[in-house]
């Protein structure tokens, strides 16, 4: 199993907070240990090129943006990425 680092990008609105919580829930359900960071710094957000919030970044790659994924959807996404 390779390293997994996850970042949730958002400017602090409700949807972005929900997304952060959903990612943590999904990881708990999957029994997967990963770093989850909530990034609100506009400059760092821009570095990923995502323009619609919230966005999810896995291993420095944007994998979801502009919508709030539910825990199940986060799990599916991570499984698709091989976790």
């Amino acid at each position: 199993m390779n390293e997994c680092s996850i970042k949730v990008l958002g400017m602090g609105c409700k949807s972005c907070h929900d997304q952060h919580a959903n990612v943590i829930d999904a990881l708990a359900n999957m029994n997967l240990a990963a770093d989850v960071e909530y990034v609100t710094d506009p400059q760092r957000i821009m570095g990923y090129g995502a323009m619609s919030m919230p966005a999810i970044v896995v291993n420095e790659k944007v994998v979801s943006m502009g919508k709030v994924l539910k825990p199940d959807d986060v799990t599916k996404l991570l499984e698709k990425l091989g976790y």
């Binding site: 609105c13 957000i45 821009m46």
Partner: peptide, 9 residues
């Protein structure tokens, strides 16, 4: 809350 990322983009 997307207005700033959009602005920057």
């Amino acid at each position: 809350c997307s207005s700033i990322p959009l602005f920057m983009g």
